[in-house]
């Protein structure tokens, strides 16, 4: 794995993400500044981490999606390279058009930080192969705008093609409004593009990878990536 973590002004979970990548893969990722125009040579995974890029004073992720480095990210995705967007990163890659739909204010109109349960709906991806199909995992969320919306056609397409990768659920795997922290359509917590190389998700697997965090359920996501990518030289 040769990972690059993007750093925009106002991003604040880049360190959490870098630590998680290093802990699981054994290799420190490159930290790439938003004004750069190229990814480091050989990058096989781009991670867009969480935070409040540019303060998110405009539509969340809208400014970062137009930063110079994003052209290189789009080209990387076009080549089939892996892209993971988490939280603000999900918002950014959605704004950049790498994924369909949009993330709007939580239905509660409040920021929410809590541990939720997720159902792994598709383990046939480079990001989720280390989970079991239908596995219910714990994972923290921390966002004010995680309510996934898209037009009916897009939602139907995502569902039909198995591109909803994570869904909010209760501890038994049951999908219900009470278990949906932000009002997302169809309880969608994470989706993947048609080609299967760009994943966006609101929850933070990087914050549940060691005993201190109270659980390890975020770890298989990184294990999956390590398995999918060649060992770094």
């Amino acid at each position: 794995m040769k990972a690059a973590v993007l750093v925009f002004p106002g991003i604040n979970r880049e360190t959490d993400m870098a630590k998680a990548l290093a802990a699981v893969s054994g290799v420190k990722p490159a930290m790439v500044w938003h004004t750069d125009t190229d990814l480091p040579a050989g990058t096989d995974l781009v991670v867009v981490p969480g935070g409040f890029s540019y303060g998110d004073y405009l539509r969340c992720g809208a400014i970062a999606a137009r930063a110079p480095i994003m052209r290189a990210v789009a080209a990387h995705a076009e080549r089939g390279g892996l892209v993971l967007g988490v939280c603000n990163g999900f918002q950014i890659i959605t704004e950049a058009g790498l994924l369909p739909g949009a993330l709007v204010r939580n239905a509660s109109m409040k920021f929410i930080c809590k541990e939720v349960n997720l159902k792994v709906e598709n383990r046939e991806t480079a990001f989720t192969s280390a989970y079991r199909h239908g596995q219910v995992i714990r994972c923290p969320v921390a966002h004010g705008e995680g309510n996934y919306v898209a037009d009916d056609g897009t939602i139907a397409e995502l569902e039909a093609e198995g591109r909803v990768v994570f869904r909010y659920c209760d501890p038994t795997g049951h999908i219900s409004p009470a278990a949906n922290p932000n009002g997302s359509t169809n309880a969608i917590a994470g989706i993947i593009n048609a080609r299967g190389n760009v994943l966006g998700m609101m929850p933070h697997p990087e914050n549940l990878i060691e005993a201190l965090h109270g659980g390890l359920d975020g770890r298989p996501l990184f294990d999956s990536l390590v398995a999918a990518l060649p060992k770094a030289a």
């Binding site: 998680a20 409040k110 929410i112 923290p140 921390a142 965090h213």
Partner: peptide, 25 residues
């Protein structure tokens, strides 16, 4: 109250709100 605060960022929160004292590694 505390679910509106990001209490997990930085990945060092060993004891979350609701206990006697918070603990941060």
């Amino acid at each position: 109250v505390w679910e509106q605060y990001d209490h997990l960022i930085q990945g060092n929160t060993a004891q979350r709100p609701g206990g006697d004292a918070a603990v941060v590694r």
